[in-house]
Design a protein around this nucleic acid. Structure first.
Lengths: 199, 199
DNA sequence: TCTATATGCCAACAGCTGTTGACAAATTCA
DNA sequence: TGAATTTGTCAACAGCTGTTGGCATATAGA
């Protein structure tokens, strides 16, 4: 054990990090089922048995690899007319920015055919999207408004990064912001009179 | 062979139909990988070997089960102000209507983690969505406009039917039409001046 | 009736899966 | 130096996968 309370001098749990990185890459590319423990081990240049010893099981490894922090910006400090654009820009940056690999691809690849991933997706929504939307407008309608926002952003991700629908892949970031920004703006700002609650 | 040119009196290729129906249900619920040939056979009350003998392979069975006809209404005969609403209503009817089982669930469950399903999804877009959108407005921008429409509708399907995000599941059909209709309207009707092409 | 054909079940194959335990090499610490 | 702990490899397990071939049964036509 080299777990000193402070200052961990990185032993050979570079191995652990290597496994986790390999897992992220393969889960991102092939999804939970198709990415095998043996594949992960091979990419991390280590024996499959170590993957299990370090993470307990494939499920736990996936859970580790699928942790997401959206870091959605606080909407109250944003020009209320520019909330939609801000959200789209942030979302594009999560997927295509310099650090990229926000981890959403890991989840989105598997969420459709893996209940565990789907539940984690719902958790991310409840913990990181809904609260942000709730910070502006009527809190009573926040969940619905956040749901609409998610439907558009998740659909964008599906078409652009997962299915790779050519016309959506070909769009520039600016075009996406101009097209989808107003949509999100209307969803976030929707009131009862618009369409949200009564009938 | 009881394949008379006309009037097939349905031999025991009710079996074939039973297998196909079972396959549709299981592919819809669990996706391509998780739905096994043995599961399909069991649900169709027949031996797994028969599934292969009737359809050749699991892949061919999936291809059969994943055939889709969207039957998108002709937009030229629709009030040009109501195109967005029309599209949403039609989409909701495909998923929730009396006949339901439009087959999209089969594809959408697997498209994220199965390249074959993803390609079939792109084919459906190119053959059944883009042409309809191209029938109104500038044909040169039709692919992009259809891509945006697809991003919103696919996102809706993901949230409501696949991930089952509670706030999106709880929306009534009317609420969805009122919220998303205007979005699709703006996407379908978008012109260069709006946001579509230049920069 | 006998025969040919369609329909179906059974057992088994080869391959892959996650996971486990025993054992070797390397490292650390005294 | 020697002993203990970490880090790793290897072989094997039990279970599942799609798929195949052989053999029984039922049906239909003569």
């Amino acid at each position: 054990m080299s777990n000193k309370p402070t200052a961990k001098p990185t032993k050979s749990e570079r191995t652990r990090a290597a496994i986790l990185e390999a897992a992220r890459e393969l889960f991102t590319e092939f999804g939970y089922q198709a990415a095998t423990v043996r594949d992960v081990a091979h990419r991390a240049s280590i024996d499959p048995a170590m993957v299990i010893r370090y993470f307990g099981s494939k499920e736990e490894l996936f859970a580790r690899a699928a942790s997401i922090r959206l870091n959605v910006p606080q909407l109250k400090v944003v020009d209320s007319q520019a909330i939609g654009e801000t959200l789209v820009r942030h979302f594009l940056n999560l997927w295509e920015g310099p650090e990229s690999s926000c981890g959403m691809a890991v989840l989105l690849r598997s969420a459709a055919s893996n209940e565990f991933a789907a539940e984690k997706m719902r958790d991310v929504f409840a913990a990181q999207v809904r609260p942000v939307v709730a910070s502006v407008g009527d809190p009573a309608t926040a969940a619905r408004r956040a749901g609409l926002v998610s439907s558009q952003l998740l659909g964008l991700a599906m078409c652009r990064y997962i299915l790779r629908l050519p016309p959506v892949v070909d769009l520039s970031q600016v075009e996406i912001v101009r097209a989808i920004g107003p949509t999100l703006q209307s969803y976030v700002m929707a009131t009862d009179e618009d369409a949200m609650c009564k009938i």
